[in-house]
Nucleic acid binder design. Structure first.
Length: 796
RNA sequence: GGGCGAGUGGUGAAAUUGGUAUACACGCUAGCCUUAGGAGCUAGUGCCGCAAGGCAUGAGAGUUCGAGUCUCUCCUCGCCCACCA
């Protein structure tokens, strides 16, 4: 029984639009509910079948909430700055602004074809100057608070993108975006001090309802560890014959002295961070990172040629190379000795690249007895491994004169990009006044038009080539000054977009505080696991900062966070246009209908797991919808409805209601299928019951549900009706069949009332014909009855 | 190496959280119908067996009247992190 989905879908989408049923109200007596999905990057490839999986899921939640009487905000927008568009612009010579506008048009048309209940009136676009004006304003807030600073530091440099990358953007030593190799480079970069928020980002995870795996990933990324900072004083030059204090046992001092440098570094002591101060008596050498060793040389250390060569080599190597060589440890002796403060032993200092320059102090005390890496190193270089007793944390700190310390893996956020397609950083450099913010009145600093989009050869953004734009006046002293030509990373705009939805057209502020108080926090945020250590952490930080500055009312932006699984191609690999295995949303929506695709996206598998696409599965959903049409034809005002149908309806209400809350959309849909199958079998259903079913169906297949409702004489929209509630009395089974087990094996089935008394149930079980066969000649030792579940008989 | 998760039919998967394993859907088989379709209807479909029955949730043990579910050992796969001291 085919139905014309194209006609129906167009019709209802228009009706919803005219009625404005999906517009969130800023003033309402209803309780608010803010549902959020990660706004898409409008790529040239068009919508991916993964997008509608998350969007339809939250659409079901949003639609259910509205029917439950909530004032729902379910907004949408565009995260449109970023490299793919810029690279496309470079290749074609077209303006990224134009390309973005085109891509948005396509995405919008495709998303709208699904009948998602977004409030389109609040649409935002991160590349709109009216939007990024506020991104720039917020950056200046960071700057004014002293959290944005410029630093020359080794950064991850993507060779092919010609761009500096944050740690989070380097995956396996490769650029997260293009997959190309990266290397370390020194570059002046704007940084944001996210590490100042490390503790709060960690602790406040306790206050939110995120999936446990999401919390774990955030915790691991922040990587807090507690330990001690201990100072190892540099010993007098090793050429001296002064052998006090004693060197560590087993140390061939004379062998080490031969290679030693002539001069000590210009430091009095080496600070190390350790999580195991209790092992300090077993420390037989110190290891410093090549980065720290380089600093020594820069401050006047006369190192041997061998040392210099090692440092140079290891700093040139990028992460990928270091990993390729894997386990094999390398290192070089410095000729410098230090005193172990706990026992006054004299121990040598080595340089090795297994110690990281960026973590802790860039130096470690090596305890081969208790640390695998140190042991491996000691064995390779023939260093002593001594077994000394452990002491308590406090005692170790006391004996060594150290102090407690906390370290994080989290690094400050590299915020500069030397690229065109991003928000200009709104700062001006004046020789006299230094870095001065562009005054609020002059925001936004609009991205100027350029001839070429490529970064310059020396790695500056193409903005640096626009003389008139770069050269400006200092806002403070009026003297000649230059604009910052770096732009922001694409994480900037997405770090606060959920705030702009609340008041997207406000010209005076990024959002009005009253409205923010009304809507925040977001009640339910769904997105991909790939954003757990990037977007999710950045945006939590950003919101906390705004909270501290008094600009937003809550510290944690997301009350609840869930994640979806990827939609894979039929062959189980990633869907991609280049591989030719991508499903085109336009084609499937036009051929099978938006409702079929919506249902299939949710039915295909458990929501949190990746699932391969199946055209046949989609066809099955279409069959289900056609069956609903058929069954709808049997719904009549005075139909005689069997109690089996009424009972199943109430069971279905219960299950669908619960399943949506737990994102078990697949089982919710299968329950509706069971219901429809039974109605078809029974041949009739009352109009009232069928309409109730349509209300359940509406969040999943809203077009067809409304159409069938109208055919039954419904005047208003289903969206304006209430969510059904189940009646436990009507849902209850009168007769159930339970199994009778004899010694753990099912030997009979009882048809009983669920309320039957225990003794009667047991008696009936023992009298069951088939059960009797297994009791013959045996002694019944025990009979267990679990109400409404099972009778279990133990015989001997 | 560390963390998290998962192994159930030919396939995607269910299982009320310790109570009849394989719901729902796809696919397949047979038959019917037909204006031959990506259509519909009926029946069947975990494995072995003519049957009675037996065996099955990655492997092996354990707890229990009863284990896909809990405990232990091991194997495989996926994701994230990865020389973080």
């Amino acid at each position: 029984m085919p139905y014309n989905h194209q006609e129906i879908e167009k019709k209802w989408q228009k009706r919803w639009d005219q009625a404005g049923v999906f517009h969130a109200q800023d003033k309402s007596k209803k309780p608010k509910y803010y549902c959020l999905i990660e706004f898409p990057y409008p790529s040239g490839a068009g919508l991916h079948m993964g997008h509608p999986r998350s969007y339809t899921a939250m659409d079901v939640v949003a639609r259910k909430r509205r029917m439950e009487g909530f004032n729902v905000l379910y907004p949408i927008g565009w995260d449109a700055f970023g490299l793919p568009t810029e690279n496309y612009a470079i290749k074609t010579g077209r303006k990224p602004q134009d390309v973005t506008a085109e891509n948005i048009t396509t995405f919008k048309r495709q998303l709208q074809s699904f009948g998602l209940s977004f409030d389109w009136s609040r649409e935002v676009n991160t590349t709109d100057p009216e939007y990024y004006k506020w991104t720039q304003w917020m950056f200046l807030e960071f700057f004014k608070a002293g959290l944005a600073y410029k630093a020359k530091m080794p950064i991850n440099w993507c060779v092919s993108c010609k761009i500096g990358l944050a740690n989070e953007e380097v995956v396996d030593g490769k650029c997260e975006r293009c997959g190309g190799p990266t290397e370390k480079r020194e570059k002046e970069q704007w940084m944001i001090a996210i590490t100042k928020y490390a503790d709060r980002l960690l602790e406040d995870l306790e206050t939110v309802d995120y999936l446990e795996k999401i919390k774990t990933q955030q915790k691991n990324w922040i990587g807090r560890s507690e330990g001690a900072m201990i100072s190892f004083v540099i010993a007098s030059p090793s050429t001296s014959t002064n052998l006090l204090p004693e060197p560590v046992e087993g140390l061939n001092l004379s062998a080490l002295i031969v290679n030693s440098a002539k001069q000590s570094p210009d430091v009095e002591a080496i600070e190390v961070f350790t999580t195991r101060p209790d092992t300090i008596f077993g420390a037989t050498f110190l290891v410093i990172s090549p980065e720290l060793a380089k600093q020594w040389i820069e401050t006047g250390w006369n190192a041997s040629e061998e040392v210099k060569k090692y440092i140079e080599q290891s700093l040139k190597r990028d992460k990928k190379e270091r990993e390729a060589e894997d386990k094999e440890k390398t290192g070089v002796l410095t000729g410098v000795f230090v005193i172990n403060p706990a026992n006054e032993e004299k121990i040598p200092v080595w340089i090795a690249d297994y110690v990281l320059g960026e973590y802790g102090t860039g130096a470690v005390m090596a305890v081969p007895q208790h640390d695998e890496r140190d042991r491996e190193f000691a064995e390779k270089f023939g260093l002593p491994i001594v077994d000394r007793p452990l002491v308590s944390f406090d005692e170790a700190i006391e004996k060594s004169g150290g102090k407690k310390s906390v370290q994080y893996k989290l690094r400050d956020w590299v915020f500069s990009r030397q690229r065109y397609w991003g928000e200009p950083i709104p700062l001006v450099n004046c020789k006299k006044c230094g870095w001065i913010p562009v005054p609020d009145k002059q925001l936004p600093v609009v991205l100027p038009e350029v001839e070429k989009y490529e970064p310059t050869e020396n790695g500056e953004s193409p903005l640096a080539a626009i003389y008139d734009w770069v050269n400006t006046k200092c806002p403070k002293c009026g003297g000649p000054a230059k604009r910052e030509t770096d732009t922001m990373p694409n994480w900037a705009g997405s770090s606060w977009y959920f705030l702009r939805y609340i008041d997207s057209k406000n010209k005076k502020a990024f959002a009005d505080m009253k409205k923010l108080k009304h809507w925040m926090p977001i009640d339910w945020y769904n997105g991909g696991m790939e954003h757990t250590t990037l977007h999710l952490l950045y945006s939590r930080f950003w919101n906390k900062f705004l909270f501290d500055r008094g600009h937003v009312p809550v510290s944690e932006p997301y009350a609840k966070r869930t994640s979806h699984g990827l939609v894979l191609a039929e062959d189980g690999t990633k869907m991609s246009k280049s591989k030719g295995n991508a499903v085109n949303p336009d084609e499937v929506v036009s051929e099978y209908g938006a409702d079929s695709v919506r249902l299939y996206e949710l039915f295909m598998g458990p929501f949190g797991e990746p699932v391969p696409w199946s055209m046949n599965g989609l066809v099955g959903m279409r069959r289900f919808l056609e069956k609903i049409v058929e069954v709808g034809g049997k719904a009549a005002e005075n139909a005689v409805e069997k109690t089996a149908v009424t009972r199943l309806l109430h069971q279905t209400i219960k299950k669908v209601t619960n399943d949506i809350e737990h994102m078990h959309f697949n089982t919710a849909i299968s329950q509706m299928m069971i219901f429809v199958n039974v109605v078809k079998e029974q041949g009739s259903i009352s109009k009232e019951s069928f309409v109730t079913f349509l209300r359940l169906l509406c969040p999943f297949a809203p077009h067809l549900a409304n159409e069938l409702y109208e055919q039954l004489g419904g005047k208003e929209l289903l969206e304006q009706q209430s969510w059904p509630t189940h009646n436990p009395e009507l849902a209850k089974e009168e007769i159930i069949s339970i199994a009778v087990q004899v010694n753990g094996k099912v030997r009979g089935i009882l048809e009983i009332s669920p309320d039957i008394e225990e003794e009667i149930a047991k008696q009936k079980a023992l009298e069951n014909e088939n059960v009797k066969k297994y009791l013959e000649g045996k002694t019944v030792e025990k009979v267990v009855y679990v109400k409404g579940r099972i009778v279990s008989i133990v015989v001997k």
